[in-house]
Amino acid sequence: MNWILLFEQFLNGFQLGILLFLLAAGLTLVFGIMDLINLAHGSLYMMGAYFMATFVGWTDSFMLAALLTLPACLLLGVVVEVVTLRRLYDRDHLDQVLATFGLILFFDEFVRLIWGPAGLDVPLPDFLETSFEILPGVPYPTYRLAIILTGLLIALFLYILVTKTRIGMRIRAGASNREMIGALGINIQMLFTLVFGLGAVLAGFAGLMAAPIFTVEIGMGANILILAFVVIVIGGIGSIRGAFIASLVVGIIDTIGRSFLPDLLDLFLDEVAASTAAPAISSMMTYILMAVILTFRPQGLFPPRGA
């Protein structure tokens, strides 16, 4: 086995895990606090990527476009929350699934109308399109490294925000007892909008960082959203720590599985069978992992307290 390749794939998996974490953190916060399943979270990710593509076209600057994309995502998130989701907090999960499914249909079609059915590419600026020698003789793309570092910083920021600040205290209080903090005179509606906006910014951020690596296309949100669901189910719904760990595990297993499973299967099966089975099995691996974990821990690895 090629150790350098393994290490590179490990980093790639780590980087996918970081993107997943940005999505999963928003999902799990929104679920933990508002008790809302938001299928349209993937649409916010997609919109982040499309905003990014547009702003890069306008400003011709990657950083400036990124700075424009984040407030745009915040605004979009707040609008979505105020217009539709606010009405769904006290509904059952089925209603929430349906309504946010409606949002997905809307956003997908909206994107098709505005940007057209073809995918877009976001070019990287020169200073990020280099590679960095992480180990002697092992270059790794700077941009991917930047994603990993930014993601880790955001995770740290979230950790401090949730555990050390007043807002974070309210968020945690909201997660454990909504009525109570309302009774204590906290404006819950404001808090909910804020949390949703935060989730939208995180999703948009994941989208804008993913834009140069993946093609910006319709439906890009749905695929990663389902992976993010797997992540929060494995991690325990409502737990940011669980989301962080599960994101990295899923990202790494998925990436390494895809690149090494064919070789691994070659050891046991003949070449034809291995090359047929490998793509099918590797795309199923994360789901198998989830099934195994849920069989032993139906509440995920870090079940929320009080649940």
Partner: peptide, 17 residues
């Protein structure tokens, strides 16, 4: 074996699988 949202998401994930 799971309940509520977990059930929704796990059936979704199996379907995806």
């Amino acid at each position: 074996r799971t309940r509520g949202v977990y059930f929704i998401m796990i059936t979704l994930a199996f379907a995806q699988m």
